[in-house]
């Protein structure tokens, strides 16, 4: 599929950012969370859509980023933008050894290996009480070092939108770069790419680390947004949800997964306001989307336009 025009995407993100000054307060809070999830889904799309490595452990980098940023702001008062970047870098650093082990495999084994690492993180966080707060998590995380304008509801929303736009530019820049083209080549035909002198494992590792870096940033922004982190962030259902967002929106399109995140988040929110058994309808909705919209929501958009 032809990628969407990046200027259009940036315009949409800017629009979502400015909406904070139009919408009532609680709607802004919702949209902030939705944008953070969009960043999370964007990071996974690099792996699932672009490298076709179906990760089922993306809760791992998300939660790790959240815990790293949370701890930095809570214990040392590291200013939020730095804490977010450092958390992303920390996650990326850990992604090197983890990715080195994971990208040797593909398909279901890759999915399960990434899942095992995320669950291992869950186990460590639950049991390592002294540092991580155990099953209670860390509460009272401040939005450290931000001027009042940015620490407030609208300000933080804008900050999230800026991070999302930057992350999108990084992801888009990556897949259109020469290296990104090689990733696509490895995805389409590993033997041929190898014959051209590229090491598939190192190429995949690059995507893996970049994807974990962005997911770590998303998690870190979530820690600042929610003000607390808990082991549930690591749990496999989180990985399942974000994967659904990516596939729902249309894997490999970058914009699709971001839209998928918004649709997923608002569908969940609206349905839960309407009926207690929202999960029932959400589940049925997924089944119908998969059967009738094979390329996700972006596929639907392309077909009608």
């Amino acid at each position: 599929m032809r990628p969407a025009d990046p200027r259009l995407v940036l315009l949409l993100i800017a629009l979502a950012g400015v909406l904070a000054f139009v919408l009532p307060g609680h709607a802004t809070t919702l949209l902030t969370e939705a944008l953070i999830l969009a960043l999370f889904a964007l990071s996974l799309d690099l792996l699932v859509g672009h490298a076709r490595l179906t990760s089922f452990g993306h809760a791992g980098p998300w939660a790790l980023g959240a815990y790293l940023a949370g701890a930095m702001m809570l214990s040392w008062g590291v200013p939020l933008p730095f804490a977010v970047l450092l958390a992303g870098l920390g996650t990326a650093a850990l992604a090197i050894p983890i990715g080195w082990l994971c990208v040797r495999t593909g398909g279901v084994t890759f999915a399960m290996l990434s899942l095992a690492f995320a669950q291992l993180g869950y186990a460590v966080v639950v049991k390592w009480n002294a540092v991580t707060g155990g099953s209670d998590g860390l509460a009272g995380i401040p939005r450290a070092g931000l001027p009042d304008v940015l620490a407030g509801r609208e300000g933080y929303h804008l900050l999230v939108a800026v991070f999302l736009a930057a992350a999108y530019l990084v992801a888009h820049g990556f897949i259109t770069s020469p290296l990104g083209r090689i990733v696509a080549a490895v995805r389409e035909n590993e033997q041929r790419a190898e014959a051209l002198g590229h090491d598939p494992r190192r190429i995949r590792l690059t995507v893996f680390v970049l994807s974990y870096f962005l997911a770590g940033i998303a998690g870190a922004l979530y820690a600042g947004f929610a003000g607390y982190v808990s082991p549930e962030l690591f749990f496999w259902t989180v990985s399942g949800h974000v994967l659904v967002m990516v596939i729902l929106g249309g894997a490999g399109t970058l914009i699709g997964p971001m839209l998928g995140a918004l649709v997923f988040f608002y569908a969940e929110h609206e349905l839960s306001a309407l009926t207690e058994s929202w999960g029932l309808f959400l589940g049925l909705l997924f089944i119908l989307v998969v059967i009738f919209a094979p390329r996700g929501l972006m596929g639907l958009v392309r077909r009608t336009s």
Partner: peptide, 30 residues
């Protein structure tokens, strides 16, 4: 559901079975 999807990619199964898990859990709660 599944029988319509055998020609498709792995990810399709992931989403439908995840959807079934979600729907089934809610149905049980209901």
């Amino acid at each position: 559901a599944l029988s319509r999807l055998y020609a498709r990619e792995h990810s399709a199964f992931l989403l439908v079975t995840f959807g079934l898990a979600l729907a089934l859990t809610e149905a049980i709660r209901l």
